[in-house]
Design a protein around this nucleic acid. Structure first.
Ligand code: SF4
Ligand code: SF4
Lengths: 137, 137
DNA sequence: AATAAATACTACTTATTTGTAGCATATTAA
DNA sequence: TTAATATGCTACAAATAAGTAGTATTTATT
């Protein structure tokens, strides 16, 4: 019952960048600040670029910066881009076909949970986070 | 963002048994009904026994039956016994030390989510599930 | 044009989770 | 007391996720 490491990294990186959303960040700098393994972070940055959250500039003086306003990036979008958020909406019991007319015993309970989860992950944008009291990333 | 396979199996098995909570179920029968791999189910049953949800009777005419009333078994307890539910309460960002006086940027958002999740998983007992419309397990 | 500083790509290694096989142990009943 | 029918245990195998290494490519500065 958790996010994957990859999602954690993606969130930490983008949240860190969201503090000063107009800046350009190099991989090297992010690695130092966030203590994420070099190659893993770089691979992830490429994924996040392809997903459209950030854009990369190659070559000297290059780096990463946001590709769109951070109030348009939800936590849902971030997680969904690196591990499928469908998993959250998939059946808890691992059935691959389900409908409300063909439910299992957990249906009602799970529906409530997943609706709330979806709502909060969807509604929370990078810009909504509280950076005032932040002491760590 | 999901439960482990093992949790799924644990839930499916116990929910299936909860439909007729006084019955004795053999591993063989559960395997047939739930289409879970033989050895994996048996190993899991032993875990669930040790966790105190069910008790096993060895030997001929043996099997598994509930060790306590099903209104005392929450979904939280079940999942927590096979994969740590602590993971849910751990930091989303993978930090291993956190307190409310030392928060990160996601703190406020995540707190709301995890409180709701905890509440619903804790409050839902096996006996609360809707078996009326159940067509599958 | 050469150099420095950055990202992009491909293949490999390690760790974790999931699944399998085989044998040991326990209990009942003929 | 032996056969049948259960569960219990230990070690191994396969699949997936996480992390690492090395090389290629891009671009501004000199
Ligand atoms: S109704 Fe049951 S089978 Fe369908 S998604 Fe919900 S938990 Fe899964
Ligand atoms: S405050 Fe931040 S670091 Fe602490 S648990 Fe919440 S998300 Fe994790």
């Amino acid at each position: 019952m958790k996010l994957s490491k990859t999602s954690e990294y993606a969130l930490r990186i983008l949240i860190y960048m969201a503090k000063k959303p107009a800046d350009l960040y190099t991989a090297k700098y992010l690695i130092e600040q966030l203590h994420v393994s070099d190659k893993y972070l770089r691979r992830l940055m490429t994924e996040l670029s392809k997903a459209g959250f950030i854009k990369s500039t190659q070559g000297r003086d290059g780096g990463y910066t946001f590709a769109k306003p951070i109030n348009e990036i939800s936590l849902y979008d971030i997680i969904d881009s690196v591990e499928s958020m469908d998993k959250l909406n998939d059946c808890v019991l691992g059935f691959n076909e389900c409908s409300c007319t063909n439910p299992c015993a957990m249906h009602d309970e799970w529906l409530v949970i997943r609706q709330k989860l979806n709502k909060i992950f969807h509604e929370t944008k990078l810009s909504d986070l509280d950076f005032e009291h932040v002491l760590r990333y």
